[in-house]
């Protein structure tokens, strides 16, 4: 598929479908984020980028055999990794036995917030969320340095800009 517009739309559809998958898995907070960020804003941002480039991908001249092999091997490795994973909803899975029971038991008394996800995100794991916020901020700084910094430099010495 050479039409990049169609690719962007398909990735948005994929994001929305995975949001539905998260809803079925009872992870509504994640589904919400996926629908807002994945299907919503990143599609718009990629479309904005697309408007700066071209609508069609240039056909590559190299052979497609090596990428196909890489994809197949990676896929097989991922499938192999799922073989000894615990079953869905297994109460004895490693993720369910570490700190999760403690959070679920303690958060009504310690934090008293009905949405345990918010309690874990903002209070128990406050450091992590601070780090995430800093990462988001760093993304904006990076984009500004790359795009606006370039434009300002060009404006300062317009003769070099040919």
């Amino acid at each position: 598929m050479r039409s990049l517009f169609a690719v962007v739309m398909l990735s948005g559809v994929f994001s929305l479908l995975s949001a539905l998958l998260f809803v079925t898995l009872d992870a509504v907070d994640v589904a919400f984020t996926e629908a807002a960020v994945g299907a919503g804003i990143s599609t718009v941002l990629i479309l904005g980028t697309l408007a700066l480039t071209s609508r069609y991908e240039q056909p590559s001249k190299r052979s497609k055999v090596i990428p196909l092999i890489v994809v197949l091997v990676t896929g097989a490795a991922l499938f192999y990794g799922t073989l000894d994973m615990p079953n869905f909803g297994d109460p004895n899975a490693a993720a369910q036995t570490h700190v999760a029971p403690e959070y679920l038991l303690q958060s009504p008394h310690e934090i008293d917030v009905p949405n345990v996800v918010t309690a874990v995100l903002a209070s128990y794991r406050g450091y992590d969320t601070l780090g995430e916020t800093a990462v988001v901020f760093t993304a904006a700084v990076g984009v500004l340095l790359l795009i606006n910094g370039l434009r300002r430099r060009r404006r300062r010495n317009p003769k070099k800009d040919t």
Partner: peptide
Amino acid sequence: QHYGILLVELGVGVTVTGVMVTIYYA
């Protein structure tokens, strides 16, 4: 805890709004 969560979430919300609009403007 309630005040803290409210403040911290407000901080996250303000940053994310700013960053998304910044990237869009850029």
